[in-house]
Amino acid sequence: MIVAKNLEAALFALREHDDARVIQGGTDLMVEINFNHLKPTTMVSLRHIPELRTITRPDSNTISIGSGVPYSQLEIEPVASVLPALAQASRTVGSPQIRAAGSLGGNLGTCSPAGDTLPVMFALDANIHLQSADSQRTVSIHQFMTGVKRNVKRQDEIITAVDFPIIDGWQGYSKVGVRNAMVISVASACLVADHESGDVRLALGSVGPTIIRCRETEQWLKDNTSLTRNSVISPDIAREFGARASRECSPIDDHRSTAQYRRHAISILAARLLQKAYA
């Protein structure tokens, strides 16, 4: 176990040990170990690296959240009023205990299609900062996640922060699970209504191998409405928006639900979110 006290030390350790894995809160990784799916060798702990636990405003239009900031901090101010959808999504992650330990770095590192905060990143076009001992790069979330539990992060890289744009508009997150708390999502959606551009962006979770950004549905809405801050969405538009979103996803049947239900749930969630955005 290498307990890194700063980012540099952690990056150095990753470069020196090509079997090394990083651990932050541990809420995903320890499940893998406890369930006999992963045999850890060299571990690099990021728990004590202050740089990964900061929230900054690099410019007036961006908020940058350290990959190790626990979800419990994202549910409250100063994040909640700037990124309400992220706050809402964070509040649905696991239990309060999980939220006190887990962080965006884990959601990104694991890259499960059910990762609760990932649709928020997709809807907001978030950028992911990756750093290695020798280099650093910024990758759009759309390029970052490549499949079920797959991403472009290299073994020697650490996810350091996620940049979210601060928009003038509305954003919201909804998640369906078969329990009123502590539940993995069966289907989730994040909708962002950018009042400046008039764009509406929609991203879906748990209904495909990656998070799905509904570009065709977004375009359809743009082509058929001209939305401003004070617009009201008719039930017909909302229904059609939902129906189109549900056609853009590619869910599967599994032990948590059925593809048919997931599709249906997306149509409802998307329609309701759109109406809420302009309520």
């Binding site: 809402q88 909804s174 998640k175 009123n180």
Partner: peptide
Amino acid sequence: PGGSGLTAS
């Protein structure tokens, strides 16, 4: 129903 998932009003 749906709780903190904010699925309904």
